[in-house]
Amino acid sequence: MDPSTLSSPLPRPRKGHVWGDRIFGVLVAGAGLFVIFLVFAIASILITQSRLAFDSYGLAFLIGTRWDVSHEVYGAVPFIAGTLLTSAIALAIGFPLAIGSAIFLTTEAPRWLRGPLGSVIELLAAIPSVVYGFWGLYFLGPYMRTTVEPILAKSLGWTGAFSGAATGTDVLTAGIILAIMVIPTIAAISRETLAAVPVAQREAAISLGATNWEVTRTAMVPYARSGIFGATILGLGRALGETMAVTMTIGNHDAIPTSLFSQGQTIASLIANELTNSSGPLQYSAIIYAALILLAISLLVNVAARLLLWRVLRVTGGTTE
């Protein structure tokens, strides 16, 4: 059918729009595809350049417990252990504080306080990690050395987790810095999911005579739990890959930490410290291999978190009505 048979007296549309729409569609689709391409580009660069280390060690790299530059022996366990340990500390400390704050923000805080407090938490998330690291190096670390760690050693030293010299630049300090950094992530998203609990749920509990806390515990938290879980995994993702703050506080020692007072190294801090001054192609390739492991872990964690959160906070904007 010929479009020109449709004619209108005054406003005649430009013929260019068909091409305009087509070109526009191709351009934006291209940009979209580029975003997807980025993931593959990142993975393929890491895979090709970790080849040498992979050929030498295979998957045994993942269980190699030594990283010895002078003997050219490279295993990833010290860094995987450091990464998991610091992240675990971060979640153990950060999770309760973040959830507590999120609950406070959604149900307990007076209304006038909620907005400003929410913004402050966002601000906490926006502070650059190198600034956290700097603060950790100058204030948190020395405070840990002189005050917190001696107390821990005295009271909990028998557990073995707090043995060794209290230096303040160790796995524990890095974990605490990470806790401070993951709290805003966990708190902000948990708050969002708590706020998304339908009012009817709360009112049902209130009408049964529940106290404030009982409403939160029975109606709010269970309803929001998969969102809170997603938020926590997202926080974990941030902790696993955090670089500057950890590099500046963990002590940078290529060995498996034996206590929370040990100096250690995470995968991220290993990369920051050794990528540009590796002693040879094998070490370089091993570092890239470690980066590939970090990428795989964080992809896994982030995909899991996003799948959870997408279900909870389903994107609904832009629909009719």
Partner: peptide, 23 residues
């Protein structure tokens, strides 16, 4: 897919971005 990928990419450690450009 693009939305999801972008979401996941924001969670990838920033140090990785430096590594791939360097590499």
């Amino acid at each position: 897919a693009i939305s999801f990928t972008a979401d996941v990419l924001t969670g990838i450690p920033s140090v990785i971005a430096g590594v791939i450009i360097y590499a």
